[in-house]
Design a protein around this nucleic acid. Structure first.
Length: 424
RNA sequence: GGUGAGGUGGGUGAGUGGCUAAAACCAGCAGUUUGCUAAACUGCCGUACGGGAAACUGUACCGCGGGUUCGAAUCCCGCCCUCACCGCCA
């Protein structure tokens, strides 16, 4: 959520920037600035009234202690009217605050200057690519057929146990999962991220803090009896560590990594690229999160992009990095880089990571601040996160790209983690 | 699931109607002293929203919401959460 004062002070800038996200903010921004004015007027009136009440109460207390009961009674008679007017001011004030808030949450984050113009996926800018797309033999199989052939992932069994989108990994398939998780965590630790093992369920306050609630409620599994939500990403619990926290500037950046299973209902996405591992209800992911000083957050973003780049390179996967255009970015992001790997049998680019700077958009909602060293005042920090990496599509690409007549070759870097070199 | 206790500032914890934004201690910050470290001493040490060029100042906040009262951290009602013990159990 954008900062209210910032909107108030820079209405034209907000409107102009949001145009690049193809969001017409003029109406909302104008309403906000008008309501803000009204809000301040009301607050002034209410505060004056309350100050008067406090004064009278003080006087009454003094008179009572002096035993001047009659004078105290006289003072009391003055309060009824003031009290009534305060009550009304407070009601109006709360109503306006609520209106402002409802408008405020409708505004997406402002895109950074680097964000390319464009409406959709076709307009994203490829900023880097690497690796080589392998030339597969004629009879190359898609990963779901390879999974069955080598008996490493059982989609049917998952349907029996739970439902579609909950595959069962077995044998070397399960070991490969574990190897990838350990590899990703080890790399993150090496890069200075503190490892976190978070809860896989969160409460409402956490869901709200990172913006899944109230708007995207339908995307999370909800255990209604206990009112807990299964996390769609470790970003939720890890970022919420810093909810309502004021950090010292010298402690920034905070760097955390976490492996977690991720649960997504994916309501409404049925039928689109859902075969095999392409889109699941439960999947594994290692996430990296940083809390950065506002002056440093774009350096931090570059740093995170580099980290993810080394991962796909070490896995020897053909990849490309996209800088998302205004129309394709998420509501909350200021700048996002998507990582895609090429899955050679499907002949498709698959998104395996999304690394974003949210600037203070998330922090404002989380009340995540740091103490400015010069002014000693709390300021909103910047939050960033990225996948490093999401497993299923990595596995899909690994299986498809590395298939040979002798079996599936494991990338060298993973062999120590797997304990085998080939799946056959 | 049963029973009991409790939610106060970064932490411990005092406060049961006005003199309490809230004692005391610890941590933290600045300084004095000291050959260094340490210790001792002195001062500072909440957040948000308003007003003000600023100094400064108004209001709100003691889990959340409501109520009683001239006045509520303190009394009443509802909700949420935490802890302890017992039972069950990985």
């Amino acid at each position: 959520m954008l900062n209210l004062k910032f909107i108030q002070d820079n209405p034209e800038l907000v409107i102009a920037k949001l145009k690049r996200k193809h969001f017409d903010a003029a109406g909302i921004v104008n309403q906000i600035t008008e309501l803000y004015r009204q809000k301040n007027q009301l607050q002034n009136k209410a505060d004056q009234g309350k100050a008067e009440m406090n004064k009278i109460s003080g006087e009454v207390g003094l008179l009572m202690r002096q035993g001047k009961k009659e004078e105290a009674e006289i003072a009391k008679t003055r309060t009824a009217e003031i009290k009534e007017s305060i009550k009304q001011f407070d009601i109006d004030f709360a109503a306006i605050e609520e209106q402002v808030y409802q408008l405020q949450v409708q505004l997406p984050n402002l895109p950074a200057d680097l964000v390319p113009d464009g409406r959709g996926a076709a307009d994203n800018l490829v900023v880097k690519s690497g690796g080589e797309i392998p030339a597969l033999p004629e009879k190359a199989l898609p990963h779901w057929d390879l999974a069955a052939k080598y008996n490493i992932i059982d989609f049917e069994l998952g349907v029996k146990l739970t439902g579609a989108g909950f595959p069962v990994y077995r044998g070397k398939g399960a070991q490969l999962q574990r190897a990838l998780i350990n590899f990703f965590l080890a790399e993150a630790s090496k890069a200075g991220y503190e490892e976190i093992q978070p809860p896989l369920m969160v409460n409402e306050a956490s869901g709200f803090g990172t913006g899944q609630l109230p708007d995207k409620e339908g995307q999370m599994y909800h255990a209604t009896i206990d009112n807990l939500y299964l996390i769609p990403t470790a970003e939720v619990p890890v970022t919420n560590i810093y909810r309502d926290v004021i950090l010292e500037a010298r402690d920034l950046p905070m760097k955390n990594t976490a492996y977690s299973a991720c649960f997504r209902r994916e309501a409404g996405s049925y039928g689109k690229d859902v075969r095999g591992l392409n889109r699941l209800h439960q999947f594994d992911k290692v996430e990296i999160v940083q809390i950065a000083h506002p002056d440093k957050s774009y350096e931090t973003l570059e740093d995170m992009v580099k980290h993810v780049t080394t991962l796909v390179e070490k896995l020897e996967l053909p990849y490309r990095i996209l800088r998302l255009c205004g129309g394709d970015m998420s509501f909350t992001s200021a700048l996002t880089y998507d990582f895609e790997v090429f899955s050679a049998a499907q002949k498709m680019w698959l998104e395996v990571s999304s690394v974003s700077n949210f600037e203070s958009f998330q922090a404002n909602r989380l009340k995540l601040r740091y103490r400015d060293e010069a002014t000693k005042k709390p300021q909103l920090a910047h939050t960033l996160n990225g996948s490093a990496l999401a497993l299923p599509r990595i596995v899909a690409a690994l299986l498809e790209n590395n298939q040979t007549a002798e079996g599936i070759k494991i990338p060298e870097v993973l062999v120590p983690y797997c304990g085998f070199e080939v799946i056959c």
